[in-house]
Design a protein around this nucleic acid. Structure first.
Lengths: 154, 154
DNA sequence: GAACAAAACTTGACTCATTCAAGAAAACAG
DNA sequence: CTGTTTTCTTGAATGAGTCAAGTTTTGTTC
């Protein structure tokens, strides 16, 4: 969890201008991995007072393009962001409550990045999402007949 | 590509009532794998004349729940459907044009379905999406700086 | 094969995450 | 400090998807 001056350095090193919304957004993503855009907006406003949602959308886009955060969007979920970008890890998503957990890439780069047949595509990333039920949702059964996973967070 | 009476049988075997919209939708998904909802609506209307979009949404939901079609939704893309449901295959998505191709599951069920650490989740599916550029987009370079893949189809 | 209950479809309004656009404010190079 | 560029604010718009009430159709039962 980088301190505020560290966050500032991260932005500068990425050649991004340092602004309060950017510091707050990057901070929020570090503190709340897999948070969706609305949660990030809330958290940023908690830190700074009123900030336009558009600013947060712009910042998230800029940070994503700069490679400082990564955007994930499991089917049926809103866009979520995480600051863990250095490695190639994957995610487990709960079908019932939408909770997301990280999983290290089990098999390194080999079977994980190489499909059996690439159809002429130049592949640069293998994204893996494991679907299932988190421990608390396994414990307290709900209706999971729908194939489309729930949208809300924990 | 099942014929119309075959489509009807498929519906009956799934204990679904046979209606013209359902036949047309299931037909469209068979004929246009990975088509998004709007394309399916267009195709269904080409077959039947006017059909409400709501009917198509309802049918797709019913077919998905019955396991006759599978819904996929790569980040930044609209919901897409495919009728290939019997096996565990994966997808390659072009970052530039959004084109989707099938890939057989390269590694069987083992590394493909087993994460290194399940965090207490009961996992039932491993979804893999390979990201890259399709052959035509590799040939005619466009701007691919954005991390969020394009929404439109070919 | 008519009548009935359940399931599907139509219509039309609505939601809400995300985007667009134009002007004001802030960052930073010189 | 000044100017240019980038970022932020404001407010409206977009559009995939959902909701809800009423009508039609399906398939079953008599």
């Amino acid at each position: 969890m980088p301190s505020s001056p560290e966050i500032e350095q991260i932005l500068r090193h990425a050649q991004l201008r340092v602004t309060r919304p950017r510091i707050a957004v990057l901070n929020a993503v570090h503190e709340h991995p897999h948070a969706d855009t609305n949660s990030i907006i809330d958290e940023v406003r908690r830190q700074l007072g009123e900030v336009s949602h558009q600013a947060v959308y712009d910042v998230l886009q800029a940070l994503t393009t700069a490679g400082l955060v990564r955007r994930i969007q499991p089917s049926g979920s809103l866009a979520r962001y995480e600051a863990r970008v250095a490695d190639n890890h994957h995610h487990i998503v709960c079908r019932a409550c939408g909770a997301v957990a990280d999983v290290d890439c089990a098999v390194g780069f080999a079977p994980c990045l190489t499909p059996s047949e690439a159809h002429g595509y130049a592949i640069d990333e293998a994204e893996v999402i494991y679907w299932g039920l988190c421990s608390s949702c396994s414990a307290s059964p709900v209706d999971v007949t729908a194939t489309i996973p729930a949208t809300h967070t924990h």
